[in-house]
Simulated scan of single mutants.
Amino acid sequence: MRIIIPVLCAALVAALPAFDDQATFSTEHDGFSLDLQEERLLEFANGQRSVVTELEKIRLKAAGIKFLDITDTPDLGKFAHLRLQSKPSFPSPNATEIVEPILKTLSTKGPQENLRKFTSFRTRYYRSDTGKQSQQWLLSRISEVMPITAKYASKSLQHIISVQEFPHSWGQNTIILRINGSSHDEDGVVVIGAHQDSTNMWPFLPAPDDGSGSVTILEAYRALIAADFRPVRPVEFHWYSAEEGGLLGSQAVATDYEARAVNVLAMSQFDMTAWVKRGTREEVGIITDFVDTDLTDFNKKLVTKYLDIPYVETKCGYACSDHASWRKASYPSVFTIESSFENSNKNIHSTNDRIDISDEFSFNHMLEFSKLAVAFAVELGSWKSL
């Protein structure tokens, strides 16, 4: 039996765009694999769960109502109580002599080149053909086909780097890149994440999406391996699929890690890192709701120590990006965004979310977030002396 939360229905009536009836209920769209009548199980901020159709899910997102789509991962967090019993602590940053030389090697050249291609796909929607193609391009860019790893990593470092696809039923896979550490996983894995997919409010429309988070962490990875980074703890870079569908990809990964009892020491999410609203101060938005407090304090210290701009505390609500999947499993997670939430890019989920639409899009601003990703990896992953 399908249950719709009454308050959500009222919000939908008031806020949803009026889609053409024939287009709304048709599943015959070239290049898409999407059944609008498929039932999905959603979870909302108050913990209430509701079964809705895929079409109703799309409408909820268009209305700005945040949720987790837990259809495939209803048990995520079932072992969360075990992690709460042994919560890690995070020391003050102290690897300045290692981090700062790496920061000087960061460049806007790679991000500009990568985004020109990444935003050229009509949409990176996770159930579209171009969404699959964009994921495969990103995978090839990271791995040896278009060799960021082969070009910048020493031969010996390449032996401790692995890249794999985490498969999903919808076809656009999550990408997981791992730099093995000298210690065992029991000492903790450090995760740096971003989502690779995009969507328009109506998924069949174009959605270039500026893709800033994805290339932000890619540039951080490039700088780290160029510096021959050899962590003590394993450091992983994740490019999640289907964030726009209700954090589907990151939930699947977090569920897998939880089932295998992987000790994730810390997870940092990068999503929207390039926008500086005209007339505002350039700053880093530190999300303070639905995150780990201690890791957030550590993140603030990294900004103060290593970045050239200040941070501002801000909130984004329940399930606003992939860090929420890890938080649900009680893994320490944080989220950093391009500004205060109210000053962030308002062109998202539209055809205007492009890198060339406004001088408010800044590659230099994006590099500040690459600095943060580098510092997060080195400070928490540590550095093995050869």
Rank of each mutant, 00 (worst) to 15 (best):
P208K: 08
F229V: 05
Y240C: 06
V262N: 07
G193W: 03
R233Q: 07
P203Y: 01
A254M: 07
L177Q: 06
E219G: 01
G246V: 06
A252I: 01
N180F: 00
Q196G: 14
A259K: 14
I217Q: 07
Q251E: 08
A227N: 11
R178F: 05
P203Q: 02
S198T: 15
I225T: 06
F229C: 08
W202F: 10
T216S: 10
G188M: 10
D256H: 14
V189W: 03
I192T: 06
V190N: 00
W170K: 09
W239F: 14
L224G: 10
V190C: 01
V235D: 09
E165T: 15
N200D: 13
A227K: 02
A220P: 00
I176C: 14
P167N: 00
T216C: 15
G181D: 09
D209A: 15
F166A: 13
E219F: 02
F204A: 12
A254C: 13
E219Q: 11
V264W: 00
S214F: 04
I176D: 05
G245S: 14
I179T: 11
I225H: 06
V163I: 15
T255C: 05
Y240P: 05
S241W: 01
G193R: 02
G181Q: 06
Y221M: 15
P234N: 11
L247W: 00
P231H: 09
A226C: 03
W202H: 10
Q251M: 12
P231C: 09
W202T: 13
V215H: 00
L224N: 10
V215E: 01
E243V: 07
L205I: 02
F229D: 01
A227F: 00
I176H: 11
S183M: 03
A252E: 13
Q164Y: 08
P167V: 05
E258G: 10
Q251G: 03
R222N: 04
A226Y: 04
V253P: 04
P208A: 09
G188I: 12
F237S: 07
V264N: 04
V253F: 11
L205M: 13
I179K: 11
V232F: 00
Y221W: 07
T174W: 05
A220L: 02
